[in-house]
Computed example of a mutant assay.
Amino acid sequence: MAIFLKANWENIIMANYVIDPKILGPFLPAGVELDLYNGKCYISLVGFMFKDAKLFNVPIPFFGSFEEVNLRFYVKRTDEEGLTRRGVVFINETIPYPIVAWMANKLYNEHYTVVPTKHKVVVENETKKVQFNWLLNNKWNSIGLEATVESLLMEQSSLERFIYEHYYGYTKINEHETEEYKLQHPSWKVSEVLDYVVDCDFEEMYGQSFAILNHTKPEAVFIADGSAVAIEWKRNKLN
């Protein structure tokens, strides 16, 4: 299978909110349904480092490493063999480089936008502090945390495993068409989160539909070490 994109994803922070499924209805692609965990519907604000990117195994000079912030929710579908494919739908993906956003939107029909970003990682003894920032309307938004340096495999059937282990992406082309693509990466290790901060204007960033998140506390915040990630070129058409 041809690989479109390779990169290293590092320090993947997930702030996870329970959300009314009705809010996600207009964003749900054709051919998939919401994937729930213990009867709850989740949406996640994500921050991570996207490093050493390659397109068709060719390095991207000057623009191969950057911060990404996105908002995503969880879906599933049953394939032709009766197997369940669990994946994510992105409301928006934010990066600092216009050329990279243009390529992703053009080639993949994604929803990338461009704003200034920065990050900071500080490791002290047995703990680490990781923070991602993005500039919106002259205000720096942020997602950050303090966690243990030690990381462990995720427990079976845990919320962490549910959040991190969705290996398909689904893009809504229009009301009747969806594109499905596959991600490749090993199961990640996660660290214990000791403290966190989320300072995000969800309404300004993602639209009025998500204004409620401005007044909602995350049910859980996680951080995974990350790894090399590959995205397959092939895209399936669903309707």
Score class of each variant (00 low, 15 high):
65 S>R: 14
239 N>K: 13
187 S>R: 02
153 L>V: 04
73 F>Q: 03
4 F>S: 11
8 N>F: 13
63 F>N: 06
232 E>C: 12
109 N>Q: 06
108 Y>N: 12
103 M>S: 05
209 S>R: 05
159 L>S: 07
127 T>A: 02
193 V>A: 04
197 V>F: 07
34 L>D: 02
178 T>Y: 05
137 N>A: 11
72 R>I: 04
199 D>R: 15
185 H>R: 14
106 K>H: 11
19 I>F: 00
191 S>N: 04
22 K>L: 14
152 L>V: 09
106 K>D: 07
121 V>G: 02
93 E>R: 09
132 F>S: 00
224 A>Q: 00
232 E>N: 11
44 S>Y: 03
39 G>R: 05
26 P>H: 11
184 Q>L: 15
111 H>A: 07
148 T>G: 01
220 A>C: 09
23 I>H: 02
11 N>Q: 11
98 P>H: 12
166 H>S: 09
34 L>Y: 02
94 T>E: 08
93 E>M: 06
190 V>W: 01
95 I>M: 15
62 F>Q: 11
41 C>A: 05
16 N>L: 07
137 N>Q: 12
144 G>M: 04
153 L>I: 05
112 Y>T: 07
237 K>G: 02
56 F>N: 10
9 W>P: 01
1 M>F: 15
9 W>T: 08
26 P>C: 08
132 F>V: 04
29 P>H: 10
83 L>W: 06
126 E>I: 03
7 A>H: 14
124 E>A: 04
37 Y>D: 04
113 T>K: 12
121 V>P: 00
102 W>N: 14
196 Y>N: 02
231 I>V: 15
126 E>T: 07
230 A>I: 08
17 Y>T: 09
183 L>Y: 15
146 E>G: 05
167 Y>Q: 14
41 C>E: 00
83 L>S: 09
225 D>Y: 05
65 S>F: 14
99 I>G: 01
188 W>E: 01
189 K>N: 14
234 K>V: 14
53 A>E: 08
213 L>C: 00
